[in-house]
Design a protein around this nucleic acid. Structure first.
Lengths: 136, 136
DNA sequence: ATAAACCTGTGAGCCGCTCACAGGTCAACA
DNA sequence: TGTTGACCTGTGAGCGGCTCACAGGTTTAT
């Protein structure tokens, strides 16, 4: 299989496959003309990578999991440890996004009653600089 | 003011100030020895940048707002248009984060009852590949 | 004068792709 | 046999928003 075939098979872009190949997550064979050929084992591997990405693992996490699984017997302890870490980060980012969303909504609603104004010497946009929720 | 002074004054890192300077959001004077000197107007500007970032504007948005405010009279229409766009993105990312968080939580709870297992010919980590919520 | 602490700008690196581009391959047709 | 043209290839660079490493300049204390 060449890059387009494997990409189409798993419904991702060729660039993503090439990226994973470039960073060593996938290791296809090289033919005489420099084209990269992917075997069934690479399909399994890529499917695994996509599943792991969908669970919030970083590509470095995945590299670590793949190395562990090729060296020792069970990558599971590594997987359990890593998802714990990534879950914490995800919770944090989720909260951050929530706060940002509320801030943005508050701003837009507050701005409905405010007129446009030209900048002054010490104000660039009075909407942004005057937004109450940013006052510390 | 040199970079450290302005950074300390607004409680951000020198690297962030330098980054904004590098991309042209801040335009300090250069002294004979190449050091960059920031004036009070730059402090106003930087404060504006930080407020806008806290409202979800990208640095490119901010560049556009600054250009608009220096050319025409009121940057407010631009600001209103841009926050609309960014808010939509933020809502989307918030939802994505929510789904990811739930997926991760489901996985960890499902994995509590599953043993560690070594990889097989077509399985790298049975926890990840066997996770039910990823089955399409 | 000199030593140490601190500060400076520049260049590169980070993540996870995505895009631009020059050139290679291959089937259809003349 | 030649040739057009569609499609495919790998490589290198670019994105955002910083952050880090580093060599060298400046300032302060002795």
């Amino acid at each position: 299989m060449r890059v387009k075939q494997i990409a189409d098979a798993l419904d991702i872009s060729v660039d993503t496959v090439r990226y994973y190949t470039r960073i060593g997550l996938l290791v296809p064979n090289k033919s005489h003309n420099g084209y990269k050929y992917y075997r069934p084992a690479d399909v399994t591997r890529l499917r695994f990578i996509l599943s792991a990405r969908a669970l919030g693992f970083s590509v470095n996490d995945i590299k670590e999991i793949l190395v562990t699984s090729s060296q020792t017997n069970a990558p599971c302890p590594t997987v359990r440890r890593l998802i714990e870490k990534r879950l914490k980060e995800t919770v944090q980012r989720y909260q951050d996004m929530h706060e940002l969303r509320e801030r943005m909504r508050l701003a837009t609603s507050e701005w409905q009653n405010k007129p446009d104004q030209p900048p002054t010497a010490d104000t660039i946009c009075h909407l942004i600089e005057g937004f109450t929720a940013l006052k510390s």
